[in-house]
Design a protein around this nucleic acid. Structure first.
Lengths: 145, 145
DNA sequence: CAGTATCCTCCTCGATACTG
DNA sequence: CAGTATCGAGGAGGATACTG
């Protein structure tokens, strides 16, 4: 069912050009998220850590603690969990060097690299429009009061 | 595909839309997520509903229950919460028609439309690589057993 | 260094009931 | 139709302690 979904196109100013319908159920009956690729991806990338980890690994491979410091604010447990997830999804490579103390290097797989581009677009949007969002929030909150 | 990736590196920002470093803390010391635009955006879009709602509103405005059916699987409460969030962030417009019964129409703002494009890119990635991810998972799980 | 194991706490989210 | 209010279960995720 999800074979032809592509076709986002790339020229128009947003409202047309987007065959968004294809990603979603025509009648929206089913409650299941399992058959929707969008959901599947977002469930992974949704947690802030996955996104940031992939971004951080894009320039160069990194070891566990370096990554932990680089990401900032992530607990050891969550970083481990996140990396396992990404590894399982084939986005991240885990390479162990049997030295003492042990070294483990994480890097993006080829599949992982293909994600960097779209993620960077979103990141770019974030930096471009962050101010607008903040302002909109401020106005909304002001109006509510 | 990797040839593009080198430009991600912070070494040469130039015109690049993809200087990832800029969004992240140099030393990653601070635990706060507040100052990072990436986090800010992802926290919004992270919940599957926001993403799907924006996608659904891209082609045309929609009323509450139509949206609820279209998204599928979202509870009334979560849709309300999600829409309020998006409205607060200036991404969605809420227009009330004082009829009986009341009609409320939701649509994307101009700012909201600018998000559609990057979101569609990610969606596109999802549909393109969904199979690979599923396979990677299967292999990983097989190896674990 | 790079984890694993446990506990424990919020906080999200769904279910349900009520309203203009 | 389009919400709001309230409650309760469940899971995400932090803190801590231990290990190869």
């Amino acid at each position: 069912m999800n074979e032809q979904i592509g076709r986002i196109d790339g020229g128009m100013p947003a409202d047309s050009a987007l065959s968004v319908e294809a990603f979603l159920t025509p009648q929206g009956e089913l409650p299941a998220a399992s058959d929707c690729p969008v959901r599947d991806v977002l469930d992974r990338l949704g947690d802030a850590w996955s996104f940031l980890v992939v971004l951080r690994l894009a320039p160069a491979p990194m070891r566990f603690n370096a990554l932990k410091r680089a990401v900032g604010g992530v607990s050891q447990r969550m970083l481990t969990v996140t990396l396992r997830s990404l590894e399982r999804d084939g986005l991240v490579n885990r390479k162990v060097f049997p030295t003492t103390p042990p070294q483990v290097e994480y890097s993006l797989t080829q599949l992982g690299f293909t994600l960097v581009r779209p993620m960077a677009e979103l990141t770019r949007w974030a930096s471009d429009h962050h101010a607008s969002v903040r302002q909109a929030r401020a106005e909304y909150d002001a109006g509510a009061a």
